[in-house]
Design a protein around this nucleic acid. Structure first.
Lengths: 232, 232
DNA sequence: TTTGTAGCTTGACATTTATCAAGTGACTGA
DNA sequence: TCAGTCACTTGATAAATGTCAAGCTACAAA
């Protein structure tokens, strides 16, 4: 494992305050690996043996039942995923796969749990991370229970527009098929939702989206702090 | 605060392993209060000043946006709610109200956070509780993204049937209006969903439900361990 | 270049879900 | 006792969403 990669991980909020000693011990038996796109990293229902950290690339968390499949979240560097399963020592509730070539750090679950016993700062950070993960899923659930498909798309566009500099255009960071699944709709319906937003200044050219009437779009979207703001 | 109530709370998984000293210190400034039905205990977006524990009665967690409202969860004794907001020191993402006369223990957020600094067992229990809360919301989200309304109802009936002794009948513990909101549908639609399940041996008489063809119902519901099992 | 292949879009249609309106029955409070 | 309210149900209708099929485009492999 390269020193620069270790530095990157060390700076994660989850690990930044723990002691050097505990950090190094925890990384014993951890490994950093590069995977090509579309590789399934973990399967739904498997025992949680490793904490995973996306160091580079992009990972999709998804769930299936009865032949259906849905994207639950998309994880970008540098962030952990399936922390809760590791801590509860329970099976993964979501599967994970790379959606582009990705570098993944895998820390044995045992190591993390041991490190938490010896390092109060780590434990504090874990509590924080978990609490925020929980809040993030609650927001997603609110988004789905309280809004229609078009509204979810509109809010996604408004948020993304802000995150990307609010300059009247967006570049979609994921394929539309995946975006549709994130938003809980079919690809066909996403196309139609984009068409519905045309009168609100949304023009689609591949992954490039023009947002010319952001105020009108916001009136439709009615963004809500307690759903759309990742912080707070 | 009565001794018997303290005993009850003490036995909570969250507090059972902490030291007597920390437990008592934590309860300084805490108060146990009885509320009538339909009282709003906390509002969406308010700062998280207290950890709440349902000692008796029943509490609904719900969320609103843009005039719409949806039930996120129902909390029964003895359990905590909005732990994550308290730990993240962030505004409540969900509002809470009693749905029957209830006794609520409120522990100042500060006290909990202080107690965690001094009691490693409490911290461990908090991590566990948080991880399980997270997993619970993920299951709810999967339920909504992967199933239709009728399927959600069918699975609710199958689960409830097992929890209530699997003897061919169920007593609905909540009003149908609330059940509808929990399941993410309108009351009208819930009525129709029950009608749809008639050929699967579901007969409704008020809050009493007869489940005469549980095997057929299970074939329709296709229950999934990783959605419907509260444990694991 | 050709030929796939995959992502995306569009149309036609089916299904699911919501909305509006009306009516029933049970309980409550005057 | 009676009126009113509320939960619930049902029907009619509308809106949202999914499915199936076809076609288009861009990109990649042969």
């Amino acid at each position: 494992m390269r020193k620069s990669d270790i530095q990157t991980v060390r700076k994660l909020a989850l690990f930044s305050d723990m002691s050097d000693e505990c950090f190094e011990t925890m990384l014993q038996g951890a490994f950093l690996q590069r995977f090509p796109s579309a590789v399934v990293l973990i399967g739904e229902g498997e025992p949680a043996d490793f904490l995973h950290i996306v160091v580079d690339g992009c990972v999709e968390l998804y769930a299936t039942t009865n032949g259906r499949e849905s994207t639950m979240a998309v994880v970008r560097p540098v962030a952990t995923f399936i922390l809760a399963a590791v801590l509860a020592d329970a099976p993964y509730l979501m599967a994970a796969r790379t959606i582009e070539s990705s570098q993944i750090l895998m820390i044995p679950a045992e190591n993390l749990r041991d490190a938490m016993k010896n390092d109060a700062e780590l434990t504090r950070a874990v509590v924080n991370e978990l609490a925020n993960s929980y809040r993030s899923v609650v927001k997603t659930l609110k988004n789905h229970k309280l809004r229609s498909g078009v509204e979810r798309l509109a809010n996604y566009l408004v948020s993304t527009h802000e995150n990307q500099g609010a300059n009247g255009r967006i570049y979609l960071p994921v394929e539309k098929k995946l975006l549709a699944s994130m938003l809980g709709m079919t690809p066909e319906n996403l196309s139609r939702a984009f068409a519905t937003l045309k009168p609100y200044g949304v023009r689609v050219k591949g992954a490039d989206i023009e947002i010319s009437l952001i105020d009108d779009l916001r009136v439709l979207a009615k963004p809500n702090e307690l759903i759309d703001n990742p912080r707070s």
